[in-house]
């Protein structure tokens, strides 16, 4: 059974008298434990697709299932609950909470979302901080670490609650090429180790090369699907 299924999903935005079709009749099935990239020009609908899959946005029409659950009809509370249990997010701007230390940022989903007891939290947080190479920086605040390090912390935060799926919207867009490569390597390594499905959007061809499967979006429609082995559609 696929981890994610989209059936005839469309998403329209009304901006004044203009209607923007961000997604048009998208049909998609994504298997678990894959490392998937969504590519396409600006405005092609990559972020909208990730938002719909991640229950951050609702489709105007069509059905979305994640991990066997229909998510397109969720209200705010149910969507938040579902995201907390199943989805990790990595953002282009890192989006770490500035008032929390590196350790506390990674710990946040366990404390504020999943209510994991303190004795279990420490082990999980330290394991992930160790895995992303940030254990020695755990007491620093986000303002005290570099952009690449922030994104590594964000990767740890996305994975700490043991989600089925991690969504990363342009995770390397604000990083230099070296840091971008390290972050993608890290994500790839974590995907292998934890068997978590990663879906990320990107413009960067070097980053795209790391993906197992690449979907191309144009004008809200999937126009191409590639695997590492070569063109399949």
């Amino acid at each position: 059974m696929p981890l994610i299924t989209l059936n005839n999903v469309s998403r329209r935005y009304e901006t004044g008298e203009t209607t923007v079709h961000a997604l048009r009749d998208v049909n998609l099935q994504l298997d678990a434990q894959a490392f998937i990239s969504i590519v396409g020009p600006s405005g092609s609908g990559k972020t909208t697709l990730l938002n719909v899959i991640g229950c951050l946005d609702k489709p105007t029409q069509g059905a979305v299932s994640v991990n066997g659950t229909r998510v397109d009809g969720f209200d705010n509370r149910d969507a938040a609950q579902f995201r907390g249990d199943n989805v990790g997010f990595i953002f282009q701007n890192f989006n770490l909470l500035p008032v929390l230390t590196v350790y506390e940022n990674v710990e946040y989903p366990l404390v504020m979302v999943q209510n994991v007891p303190e004795n279990q939290r420490k082990e999980r947080v330290m394991r992930l901080l160790d895995a992303v190479g940030m254990a020695d920086q755990k007491d620093k605040y986000p303002s005290q670490v570099s952009g690449g390090q922030k994104q590594r912390i964000a990767v740890a935060r996305a994975l700490v609650a043991d989600p089925k799926l991690v969504l990363a919207d342009e995770p390397t867009a604000n990083l230099d090429s070296v840091s971008a490569h390290k972050v993608i390597e890290l994500m790839r390594g974590m995907q292998h180790e934890l068997k978590t499905t990663f879906i990320f959007s990107t413009h960067d061809p070097k980053v795209v090369r790391e993906a197992e499967i690449v979907y191309t979006l144009e004008d809200g429609q999937i126009t191409n699907r590639e695997t590492r082995a070569g063109l399949t559609n």
Partner: peptide, 16 residues
């Protein structure tokens, strides 16, 4: 606002 979006995306319930 952006921070609120982040914690909401992570799964923080509206009541929290």
């Amino acid at each position: 606002v952006s921070e609120i979006g982040t914690i909401a995306a992570i799964g923080t319930l509206p009541s929290r």
